[in-house]
Design a protein around this nucleic acid. Structure first.
Length: 275
DNA sequence: CCTTGAACCTGCGGGC
DNA sequence: TGCCCGCAGGTTCAAG
C-alpha cells in the first residue's frame, strides 16, 4: 500500500483526530512484525499526550510528551484504522492506542512487513531506521544539481535508484514508474547516464506526481483505508503502473505499456515515449 | 564499494 | 468448485 503520498495521508488523517489527546492505553496483540516491538511499548505510551504527527520517508512519526517518539512503518500491507470505542480485534490487528476520550487508532498488517519502534526525540534523526535515509523529495535543499550528484554515483538502472531510500526517501514502486513515464525516461537507463536537463525534469515530475497523489488523498489499491474514517476508495489514476498491455495514455501508439522486472520488482513503461 | 536475488508473510486473482 | 501458481505498495541480508 504505502509510499510517500499514502503515508502522508495517513499521518495527516491521524493528526486530525489524535493530536492533543492523551493515551489511555496501548494494546499489543502480536509483537512479531518485521522487527519485534520495543520492550515495554504499551507501558511507555500510556499517559503520554500526542503533540504532533508527521512523516519521514515512509515512517509515520508520532511525537509524544516528555520527549518520546513513536515510529510506525506500514510495510506492504499495513494500514491504520481510526474509530471510537473498542479497537478492532481481527487477526491482523497487531497494535492499537486508545485515547482518554474514547478514540482509537489501530495498525492492521496481514503480511507483517511493517514495524513499530520508539525513539527519543533528541536523537530521532540518528535512530537506526531513520539515520540512513536520503533527502525528502520536497526538501528545498534537494535541487537538480544535488539530485544529479546523487544519481551520478549509481550505475544501476534509474528505476532501481529511485527506490533506494538512501538516495531519495519515500519513493516506492508505483511512483518510480509513474515519474519516469512523465519524464519520458526509460526505467532501464543507467542512473548516471541522465543528462542535467533530464535530471531536472525528473525531479520536477517526481514532485508533481507525488503532490497530485497527496492531493487526491493518497492513491489506493485494494486494502487502503483512509485513517480519517471516510471510505478508503477514492481512485487515483496511474498512467502506466499495472497497465501492462494497455495503450499509452500519452502517445496512444499501438505499442502497449510493457512490464519488466528490475531488482525483483515490476516496472511499467511506454517503449515509444520513454527514451 | 556496488548490484542482484532471496527472504520475510499472507491474501488474492487467474488459469486449469 | 478447488487447487496451484504468480504476484503484491517494502526492507534487509547474503553472495557475487
Amino acid at each position: 500500500m504505502p509510499e510517500l503520498p499514502e503515508v502522508e495521508t495517513v499521518a495527516r488523517g491521524l493528526a486530525k483526530v489524535l493530536v492533543g489527546k492523551r493515551i489511555a492505553r496501548a494494546l499489543v496483540r502480536r509483537a512479531d512484525l518485521r522487527l519485534p516491538f520495543p520492550k515495554g511499548l504499551a507501558q511507555r505510551l500510556k499517559g503520554r499526550t500526542i503533540l504532533k504527527i508527521d512523516r519521514r520517508a515512509k515512517y509515520v512519526l508520532v511525537h509524544l510528551s516528555e520527549g518520546l517518539a513513536l515510529l510506525i512503518h506500514l510495510g506492504m500491507s499495513g494500514r491504520m484504522l481510526l474509530g471510537t470505542g473498542a479497537a478492532p480485534k481481527g487477526k491482523h490487528a497487531h497494535f492499537a492506542i486508545e485515547t482518554e476520550d474514547g478514540a482509537h487508532a489501530c495498525l492492521e498488517d496481514p503480511r507483517r512487513f511493517g514495524c513499530v519502534d520508539l525513539a527519543n526525540e533528541i536523537d530521532l534523526d540518528r535512530h537506526r531506521l531513520l539515520a540512513g535515509l536520503g533527502p525528502e523529495p520536497f526538501d528545498p535543499a534537494l535541487d537538480a544539481k544535488t539530485f544529479r550528484e546523487r544519481l551520478a554515483r549509481k550505475r544501476g538502472p534509474i528505476k532501481v535508484a529511485l527506490l533506494d531510500q538512501a538516495l531519495i526517501a519515500g519513493v516506492g514502486n508505483i511512483y518510480a514508474s509513474e515519474s519516469l513515464f512523465r519524464s519520458k525516461i526509460l526505467p532501464t537507463r543507467p542512473a548516471n547516464s541522465l543528462s542535467p536537463s533530464e535530471v531536472k525534469a525528473l525531479l520536477a515530475d517526481l514532485r508533481a506526481v507525488l503532490s497530485e497523489a497527496i492531493a487526491s488523498g493518497g492513491s489506493t489499491l485494494r486494502d487502503h483505508v483512509r485513517p480519517d474514517g471516510e471510505l478508503g476508495y477514492f481512485q487515483h489514476h496511474f498512467a502506466v503502473y499495472d497497465k501492462e498491455g494497455e495503450p499509452c495514455p500519452r502517445c496512444h501508439s499501438k505499442a502497449e505499456i510493457l512490464r519488466i522486472v528490475q531488482a525483483g520488482r515490476s516496472s511499467f513503461y511506454c517503449q515509444r515515449c520513454q527514451r
